[in-house]
Computed example of a mutant assay.
Amino acid sequence: MTTAIRRWSIDRLVPVLAGTMVLLSLALMLAFSPWWLLLTAFVAANLLLYGFAGWCPVTLLLQRLGVPRTGCPATERNQ
């Protein structure tokens, strides 16, 4: 029995990066200014765009960096 090594994919990285940015903006808001909540709103808008359209600016960047769209190829999913 072989196990496929799970690679970081765009589908996994987008929510991880979004959550990191939300926590960062909340910390910056508490430390400096409530205006940092605009970063949270921007992240939320990008998550909505990603949910409805399937892409956001981060996905374009990750694709150019060579990150795969899904964690494993279609041939490995059925094994």
Rank of each mutant, 00 (worst) to 15 (best):
R64A: 10
S33W: 05
F32K: 09
L61Q: 04
L39V: 15
A44S: 13
G54R: 12
T40V: 15
T59V: 01
L48E: 00
F42C: 14
L49V: 14
P34S: 01
P57E: 09
L48N: 01
G54M: 09
Q63E: 14
A31T: 01
A31R: 13
V43W: 07
V58T: 15
A27G: 07
A41C: 07
L48M: 13
A44C: 10
L48I: 14
R64Q: 08
V58M: 13
C56F: 12
A41G: 14
L60N: 03
Y50Q: 05
V43Y: 08
L60A: 04
V43F: 11
P57F: 08
W55I: 06
T40P: 03
Y50I: 01
M29G: 12
Y50M: 06
A53G: 03
V43H: 09
P34G: 02
L38V: 13
G51P: 03
P57W: 05
W55F: 14
T59E: 02
L30G: 00
L37R: 12
L48A: 15
A27P: 00
Q63K: 14
L26R: 07
T40W: 06
Q63L: 09
L30V: 05
N46H: 05
M29Q: 06
G54S: 13
W35K: 12
W55M: 06
W36I: 02
Q63F: 02
L38Q: 07
W55Y: 14
F32R: 10
G54A: 05
L62P: 02
S33V: 00
L47A: 11
F52L: 13
L37S: 13
L26S: 08
A53C: 03
A31G: 00
S33L: 04
L28D: 03
P34H: 07
L28M: 09
L26E: 03
T59W: 01
L49S: 11
A27K: 03
W35A: 15
W36V: 00
N46D: 03
P34R: 04
L62W: 00
W35E: 06
W36N: 14
L48W: 11
R64Y: 02
S33M: 02
F32N: 06
L61T: 12
R64K: 07
F32S: 02
Q63T: 09
R64I: 02
L61H: 00
Y50P: 05
N46G: 12
G51Q: 13
N46W: 02
L61D: 01
V43Q: 08
L37K: 11
L30C: 04
P34I: 07
V58D: 03
L26T: 02
A41D: 01
A41R: 05
A45M: 10
L49G: 08
P57D: 05
L39C: 11
F42M: 12
L49E: 11
W36Y: 15
L37C: 13
A45V: 07
M29K: 03
L39G: 15
T40Q: 11
L60F: 09
Y50A: 08
L26A: 14
L26D: 07
A31Q: 13
G51K: 09
F32P: 01
V58Q: 10
C56K: 03
S33T: 12
L48Q: 06
A27N: 00
A41E: 05
A44M: 13
W35R: 10
L47N: 10
L62V: 03
N46C: 13
W36R: 01
L49R: 15
L30N: 00
W35C: 06
M29L: 02
L60G: 05
G51Y: 08
P57T: 05
V43C: 07
L28Y: 00
C56P: 08
A27T: 08
